[in-house]
Design a protein around this nucleic acid. Sequence first.
DNA 1: AAAGACAGAATGTTAGGACAAAGTCTTGAC
DNA 2: GTCAAGACTTTGTCCTAACATTCTGTCTTT
Lengths: 246, 246
Amino acid sequence: MGEQLRLTVDRRSPVPLYYQVARQLEQAIASGEVSPGFKLDNEISLADQLGLSRPTMRRAIQELVDKGLLVRKRGVGTQVVHGRVHRELELTSLYDDLRGSGQQPSTRVLLNVREPATAEVADELGIAEGEEVLHLERLRLADDEPLAVLRNWLPANVISPTDEELEGGGLYQLVRDAGTHVQIARQRIGARGATTQEARLLGRRKNDAVLTMQRTAYADSGRAIEYGDHCYRPEAYSFEVTLVER
Amino acid sequence: MGEQLRLTVDRRSPVPLYYQVARQLEQAIASGEVSPGFKLDNEISLADQLGLSRPTMRRAIQELVDKGLLVRKRGVGTQVVHGRVHRELELTSLYDDLRGSGQQPSTRVLLNVREPATAEVADELGIAEGEEVLHLERLRLADDEPLAVLRNWLPANVISPTDEELEGGGLYQLVRDAGTHVQIARQRIGARGATTQEARLLGRRKNDAVLTMQRTAYADSGRAIEYGDHCYRPEAYSFEVTLVER
DNA sequence: AAAGACAGAATGTTAGGACAAAGTCTTGAC
DNA sequence: GTCAAGACTTTGTCCTAACATTCTGTCTTT
């Protein structure tokens, strides 16, 4: 297969050079322009071809190694990994994920109130028990099929959304629009039997298996922004993770 | 809190300098020697203190930023993140995870045979249907409590373990001992009701919720090394993931 | 013919310097 | 007193350069 990687960089662009190269490489792999096992030219040669220094070229490659798309071996070279490539578990909202995969997401707001934080919520958010928090409960649907029950608690001053705003998009979009940058999130993924309420909302029976996810998200200031306790219909949703040995 | 970070490097060690520094920083954070919100000295000053160049110091810090332990902001500095720090989902075996957390892992071998690959297994391993594979089924216990049912398929020539070897440790250890380096793995995490057999093994009832994980692992050669289909008792096990916005 | 020595090729680590961009704080003008 | 301009601090990007380490294949020797 006459594979030939053609990369370019635009030095007038404000986008970092290593980032430009990484995205093009990623695109070439995702589109199948280069197939699994394809061996890249060595770093120095690639850098020369693009008029870059080796560290910059190396950084671009490293990005994709970290993502699990390329494999490097000392003394040998760099190859495109074998096996299917799929979308990563990223810091995106379920809403955006669904739209990205061609489904039609929608939201039903079940609860949108302010209340004092319970001990559990206060602990997760790192605030005092009883402090006011925004409590949201939403039912997320994909193509009008119930997919997940989303329960979230946010410190009082992060956002004050109307029901309409909640129905029009994802929670993270609202947080970003409010000028808060979500930097890091910790998730715990598990399973349990559905409660009566969850079963009713998801169209299942009580104690049928549901996939659960608890998440605490932090802003770049280090402050906790959101605690979420979600449960998903397992036939319709699963999490994917790629692990790379460094 | 009289916090003072004391780092050292050993230039005679074959361990890379950035790695030495990263591990010490990680240790200091994990042990609580520096508390959340602690502001590190700037990169140049830290590099000077250790007699390192700025790129090396920067790389050490980057490692921890990627792990979600530190947060950097341009013009401001680098801080230890708020919130609890817990063990990462890494490319380690369940066996090692359990031992690391102070529990006593054990294994009961249910099946250890060679058989022709089914279509599903062949597809996951990237081999031809009907090609010989090693098929393992194990029950993993923690402190004599059943924890997970582990089903694995490996290409025929990777390992040939005895039941005793399987009972003495994790699968990945055997693969490593055979000289194969596991480089990357893709995992899909979901949930479903337990089958009759799983329920019996795990001490649950049929259709009780179990947490499931399907994994395909690849060697650094790009060849698939293992396909696993595991299910866990959800009260006893969950997956943790840290997501970092870059 | 097989085993070991050696050279070549590729990535891994480290150094040191320069400038850019973003956030914070001080200073000065109104 | 308030607001804006500018100085300063700190991380972000990029460069050149050198040497180390590991793997592969070849060539020599036995």
